[in-house]
Design a protein around this nucleic acid. Structure first.
Lengths: 136, 136
DNA sequence: TTAAATTTGCAATATTGTTGCAAAATAATG
DNA sequence: CATTATTTTGCAACAATATTGCAAATTTAA
């Protein structure tokens, strides 16, 4: 699906900045931080606009956040079937200590864990740190 | 073990700020962010000192970081057997959406996952979101 | 084509984290 | 216990990251 249709699908106004950010995600394939995106926009849009765009996309379920072991917040495109409110992004994320790139391991599902009595589970996030395929 | 002995065990100077921060961790029981700690210190010590204290404790293995799905970095006391350089904090962390408190589920180990060919794993973090025992 | 609604960019401000350095506190020594 | 050496602290300055209000510009609806 192209960027314009994706925006319409989620009932969002089609604007330059939203298209740019979507294109950047589509081209990169991986997970990006706010500053990654800002860098690739080369000053085309304001920092604030990027923040708001990411927020909007996350609210709509177009992108999802990835927790990292350090400080940064990363975002990645949801799979097509993420639609309908709740995400299907329960795959493992991988952070390479060599190239510092975070990858979505789409084929590695997050295993279920048995919680102590009384805990109710909604969501699980899992981040593996190590050396990725390309840096090996 | 009391705070003072703990500091000596790790060959750290015993200072007011370190004792205060340790006490805060011991009383809270749960995971705390930098600003949690700063808040409870009520201006007793400088922001910078808190940063440095947390850094020192993390380096020595007295506390460990917990990745969260949002922005914040949380810290929690390591178990006694964390000593000797490498941590035994490979347990699951639980974030309650009601009380917003992060707990270490010490008895729930992070399951191992099989990574795609070529990926080498060093470390795994797992955060479960849901409703905790007390908020149920 | 025009009016209504939304989005953007700017400015200001808040929050979070880092660094250098002199003063203070702690540890080591006799 | 007193003195010296080492470490730690607090301040100031700074950098990076994030948020808010508001007028101008853009997009959508009519």
């Amino acid at each position: 699906m192209n960027a314009q249709d994706l925006l319409k699908k989620y009932q969002l106004s089609v604007t330059d900045s939203r298209l740019s950010v979507l294109h950047i995600f589509m081209q990169s394939g991986g997970a990006l931080s706010h500053s990654d995106i800002e860098g690739r926009l080369k000053g085309l849009h304001d920092r604030v606009t990027v923040y708001r765009t990411l927020q909007t996309f996350a609210d709509k379920g177009i992108i999802h956040q990835i927790p990292t072991t350090d400080n940064a917040v990363l975002y990645a495109l949801c799979k097509e079937d993420c639609a309908g409110g709740h995400h299907h992004d329960n795959h493992v994320h991988f952070l390479c200590t060599e190239c510092e790139i975070t990858t979505c391991l789409d084929d590695v599902m997050v295993p279920t864990v048995k919680l102590p009595r009384g805990f109710r589970q909604n969501d699980v996030k899992m981040v593996v740190t190590g050396v990725c395929k390309l840096c090996k």
